[in-house]
Every structure is written in C-alpha cells, then in structure tokens.
Write a protein that binds this DNA or RNA. Structure first.
Lengths: 177, 177
DNA sequence: TATTGTTATACTCTATAACTATA
DNA sequence: TATAGTTATAGAGTATAACAATA
C-alpha cells in the first residue's frame, strides 16, 4: 500500500466534516446529528489537548470522580457514569494498572472496595485537570457569550431527552438486542 | 444471580444521571461533559423511538446519505461519516445484508461500487425517517424557543473545536495509539 | 504510483450470564 | 434472597496492515 494511504484523504479518519457535493438530507436538520458532530469534534480536540497522558474523556471523568469522592465504591462509580458493574470493573482495573488509583477494603462492607487516588495519581491528575480545564476554557472563549447559553441548553436537552425516553407511556429499550 | 439483577439499579445502565451524594467536581463545569451527557440521553431516546427498526444512529445516517446521494461510493460515504475505508465497508455490508442497499458497478470506474437503496429499503427508510423526525420534533418542542439557538450553538461549537484541533501549531493526534 | 475496495486482525467499549463471597 | 465484585464471553465499532484490481 502506498505511503500516503491516509495522508491524502481529504477528511482524516475520525473527523466528521461536511463533504462538499454530498447531500445530507434530513440529517442537517436534526438536533441529534448536530450533537453528534459537536461531540465528535470535541472528542478529537480533547485527545489533542491531553495527548501526553493518553487518557480518554471517560477515563478522565472516572479519575475526577474518584478524586472528589475518596473511598468511592466501584458500583457507585458505574452508576454515576451510566455503566454496568463489569464496565466499572474494567475502568477501575485500568486506573489501578496505570497507578492512578488503589483499591482498599471498604469499611463496613467486606464485599466492597473503596477507591482512592495514589499520591502519584493525585499529582498526575492535577496536571491533567489543568490541561482539560484549559482546553475547555479555550472553547468557551472562542464561543464568546454564546458559550454559557450553550452549556445551559445542553443540560436542559439532556434532561428533556431523559424525560422523554423514561416517560411511563414509552417503553425504554435500554440496549441494542 | 437474582432475577432483579439490573431492575433494582437506581440508574439503569446507559443512563448517565447525576447520582445524589456524588461530587462531580470539575466535570459539572465542563462544556465537554455537558455535551457527553446530552448525547448519551439523546442516544437512548433515539433507540426508544426507533426500537422496531433496530438501527443505530450511525446506521441511520448512512442510510440517509445513500438515499440522498444515489450511486454514492463507499469511500465517500466513509469520508462523510469520518470513517476509515474498512469502516465504510462494514457499514455497507450491514446495509446490504439487511436488504436496504445494493452495490452496483459504478459507471466510469471499475474499481468502485455505487450504492443504491433497494425498493424495499426506500419503503422502510421512509417510515424510519418519519419516526426519527418525530423524535427530533418532540425534543425541539420540549425545548421551545431555546431549541433553534441550541442547534446553532452546537454547529458553531463543532466548528470551533475542529478549528482548534486542526490549527497549524497544534499537533492533531487522530487516534488513540 | 495512487486509489478503491477487500481481507484479516486487533483493540476498545460495553453488554450478558454465571460465579463467589458477603450481607 | 439480594448485593459487590469478578470472570468469561460476545458483539459493536473502528483502527491498522497487507493485498488485488484498476486508474
């Protein structure tokens, strides 16, 4: 295969840009598609801003949750992140394998672990959090006064969509069957 | 395992709701986290609204693109969706296996396929599009006049984040290494 | 040489199911 | 009987690399 295999692509993989000449039809009008495009772009920019840590947005979120809630149980971590127990396990395995977190016996329940940042984890996370905060500040700065309204709108959207999908007359289908 | 294994969970899997008693720290202030929460909620509501079709948002988008661009090449489909060639192949395989789409020889290039909806695909997609449009309209209706501004803000956000991650002085890191 | 699509493979994410130990 | 965590497995999703046919 040629050396320029992916370098010559007009759109690099991962980047969801409108391709000239392609008709997006109904997609352009959908709120859901706009959210997807925005999240895609944010995701790529997050990776750029945190390249030296090699941490995904989700793993970053898990670290922050452990940091702010010392002794957090795996199960509660999963709930806060919308994950199954087994997913919380994998996430915790990663955090401990990377040396960010340690499992200690949870007081009062011999079945459970409490999660705690290690000393090194605290140090690394502090720098990582600063990088993420800078990344987010840059976005907000570029958005100007629109930024705050956008964040409020997103929070309302999450609430509205949740209400819709969990309304009593709707049958929530949790997972792809 | 008990019958109620996941039914008793306060937060069903997939749903990213704020858990009382958990401190989210910096996450609550991040634009990126607000986008993630919104997308998570929208995703679940999309699945509820389109349950009878068993189509993911991405597969839906691919179907719309083929529908609006008869004869679309696999490669261009991939570009429009931010996918590698191999991803566009899998997506196309799925669309043809489900009977939505057929590959025909592309005129003028014996290497390429042109993608076309089948007659049955057109019929099914028409109903699916109506369901998705209804789902989106319900969201916009619940948001009221905030909806249009939110959509515009999301489009601007996608643009700003893309500009940031592809700026010449930044090194874009496309994929997780 | 470059491009289109394919095959084979691997890794991440996240689910289900069955299991252990404890409550 | 229910809960916390684990193990094993499966299925999306998406990448990389090497390949064939064509341009």
């Amino acid at each position: 295969m040629s050396k320029t295999d992916s370098l010559n692509d007009i759109t690099p993989e991962g980047l969801m840009l409108p391709v000239p000449g392609v008709d997006y039809g109904a997609l352009d009008g959908l709120l859901g598609y706009a959210v997807r495009r925005a999240q895609n772009a944010l995701y790529l920019d997050f990776y750029r801003a945190t390249a030296e840590w090699d941490v995904s947005p989700q793993r970053f979120a898990a670290l922050v949750l452990v940091s702010r809630n010392p002794g957090l149980r795996q199960g509660l971590l999963g709930q806060a992140m919308g994950l199954h127990r087994s997913g919380a396990l994998r996430l915790t395995d990663w955090m401990t394998a990377q040396g960010y977190v340690e499992r200690r016996d949870a007081p009062g329940d011999a079945r459970a672990w409490g999660l705690y940042l290690t000393a090194g984890g605290k140090r690394r996370l502090a720098r990582l959090e600063a990088a993420v905060a800078g990344h987010d500040r840059a976005l907000l700065a570029a958005l100007g006064e629109q930024g705050a309204a956008l964040k409020a709108g997103l929070e309302r959207l999450a609430w509205v969509a949740t209400a819709q999908s969990t309304a009593p007359d709707n049958k929530p289908r949790r997972h792809k069957p």
